[in-house]
């Protein structure tokens, strides 16, 4: 099963709709709740990042017998130093985003924590793609 979601970069408060929809689909498919939770958290963090940092983008979710793959793509400014961005507490989020409860520099580390595999590719000025896999 393949699912596709467009993620608006204009409305931070609307972020999370795709993650919520995927969570419902996985529940309907009777996937193990612990797996659903991992997917939901990893995907939600990625969705928030796509809005905050990527200026919007899209998410593709591929549900296979062996795993669930989540691919997030944006056309934002890109990540100059991925190793630095992966460090807990490192953040480039604005004050406005921090006031809304996010931007503490935990997004990427958390996405890695809740997925079994994560690959980040990014080019400055062109955008970022994050592929996360959660095994079933």
């Amino acid at each position: 099963m393949k699912l596709h979601y467009e993620i608006s970069g204009d409305d931070f408060l609307a972020a999370g709709k795709a993650s919520s929809a995927v969570k419902k689909v996985l529940s309907q498919l009777s996937v193990n709740p612990a797996i659903i939770r991992k997917v939901a958290i990893a995907m939600y963090e990625a969705e928030i990042n796509t809005v905050i940092h990527g200026g919007g983008g899209c998410a593709d979710v591929i549900i296979s017998p062996d795993n669930i793959k989540m691919i997030f793509k944006d056309n934002g400014p890109g990540i100059p130093n991925i190793e630095l961005a992966m460090k807990e507490g490192y953040s480039t989020a604005t004050t406005e985003i921090r006031e809304l409860g996010f931007g503490a520099g935990m997004g990427l580390p958390n996405m890695k924590k809740y997925s079994d595999d994560m690959v980040v590719t990014s080019e400055v000025g062109k955008g970022t793609t994050v592929t996360m896999t959660v095994n079933l």
Binding site: A14, S19, Y44, G101
Partner: peptide, 15 residues
């Protein structure tokens, strides 16, 4: 003490 839609979304994702 935080109040916006993402508080609800966060709770939803975290069960």
């Amino acid at each position: 003490g935080l109040m916006n839609l993402q508080v609800i979304r966060t709770a939803e994702m975290m069960d």
